[in-house]
Design a binder for these strands. Structure first.
Lengths: 141, 141
DNA sequence: GTAACTGCAAAATATTTGCATCCTT
DNA sequence: AAGGATGCAAATATTTTGCAGTTAC
């Protein structure tokens, strides 16, 4: 717990973000939780301690610094997840598969499963690829 | 043009949906356009002829019948695309890669590129997998 | 004729912006 | 002290719901 707090502090520093209560808390959430978080999860898990607007702005700041990224989901909801350490501002190397459980609705990063390469038709230029697998997770089985 | 109208009519019939102006028009849009459409695209391309609510309900009806499906995107926006013929109600076999162009922002179905298989960790059960590739499309190159 | 679909109004949600105040550095 | 971050209010945008009138079959 303590070391995660320490780590959050360091990450904020490293990214030239001023260290505030909301940022420490929200970044801490990401460090503590396995999978991805939706905006609503964050509000809930922080006990609505922070203004909705602050959460939006905090997430946006994290995105701009490349600390987190969005995971596309077939249903409307956007989820956010920590980027890997080698994410630089604007470009992600977050090349593992994401798993969405249809039972508990949680999004898990399958860090051990790499997104496979694909061959695109002639003329298409690839900059990023994502893979979302839906099913039942190990906890809901 | 005429045959596409005919096809829209038949598809509605086949799915036990009553044939109305909005349904014919919106389904026609999907049949005429290559890629995927966002809600806003549909409103624009029908010239706001139909109520926003009707568009929502039409898309929902198509979804329930398995005529269209959603494509997840990293930015918030949901896009809809025609399912392949072998989609049955509730279950899709729409196993091609989707491509989102960062220049024109259009979503294209890469029908020739199949979503690769993945091996999941023990205990995870797969029901569906999607792959979204971002980059620059052949028209924007 | 009946059931289903549409459009309008309005409610419920989600997201963005402006600004005064407070906190970090 | 100064610049940035927060919280509140309010403006926008998006999606859903109820209901009366209209249309498909």
């Amino acid at each position: 717990m303590k070391d995660k707090d320490q780590r959050a502090y360091q990450m904020l520093k490293d990214n030239q973000l001023s260290v505030t209560d909301s940022r420490k808390n929200i970044l801490g959430l990401f460090l503590h939780s396995e999978g991805a978080l939706a905006h609503a999860d964050i509000e809930k898990k922080t006990g609505e301690k922070f203004d909705r607007v602050t959460v939006y702005r905090t997430l946006q700041a994290f995105m701009e610094k490349g600390i987190i990224h969005t995971i596309p989901t077939a249903d409307n909801s956007i989820r956010y997840a920590l980027c890997k350490d080698d994410c630089t501002e604007g470009h992600h190397h977050d090349n593992h598969v994401h798993f969405i459980c249809t039972v508990c609705n949680r999004t898990t990063c399958l860090a051990s499963v790499t997104v496979p390469e694909v061959e695109l038709p002639r003329g298409f230029k690839l900059t990023d690829r994502q893979m979302i697998v839906t099913g039942i997770c190990i906890d809901c089985r």
